[in-house]
Amino acid sequence: MKLRSISNWLQNRATDVAVAMLTVMFLSFILQIFFRYVMRNPLGWTQEITLTMWLWLVFWGAAFMLKDRDHISFDILYLAVSQKVRRIFALVSAVALVAGFVASLPATYDYVEFMSIRRSSSLRIRLDIVFSVYLIFAVAIIARYSLRAFSLVRGADPDADAGPEPKV
């Protein structure tokens, strides 16, 4: 199906970006150690790059890479109930997440925008830009769980979006 292949393509590009972030984070940390201990002349900007990439990796990954199964969750009760009850559970989850993230979105936007008054310590990047990844994350969560709520209402299997089976 065409829509499915577009979605896969996007998923793969999101993974490329995450891999790039993790690689940059790792390399800049190694560079920092090399300059500190081998060259005895520490660089100022490596720590900031490392932390920024880590922040982006967490929210970018949580927005675009994590299926429901990848998230850390307490699934004892969920796995024990019938398919029908699971659908209700999944629907309540999705609605609660959409409600919570929508309700806090305006204030969250306001906070991120407010942070333009400050720049990062070494590279002087405006912090609203650094923190904007949280907005991307919040919007992605709202979109993903809205779609999930609609498909559940229309009778979809609650475990369809769950990703691969447990790796056990």
Binding site: T15, L22, L57, V58, G61, A62, M65, L66, H71, I72
Partner: peptide
């Protein structure tokens, strides 16, 4: 590449919590 992708996924789920 695959191990970096898996690491990124694991790091995101642990980092979020």
């Amino acid at each position: 590449y695959n191990l970096m992708a898996n690491s990124a996924r694991d790091a995101a789920s642990v980092g979020l919590i």
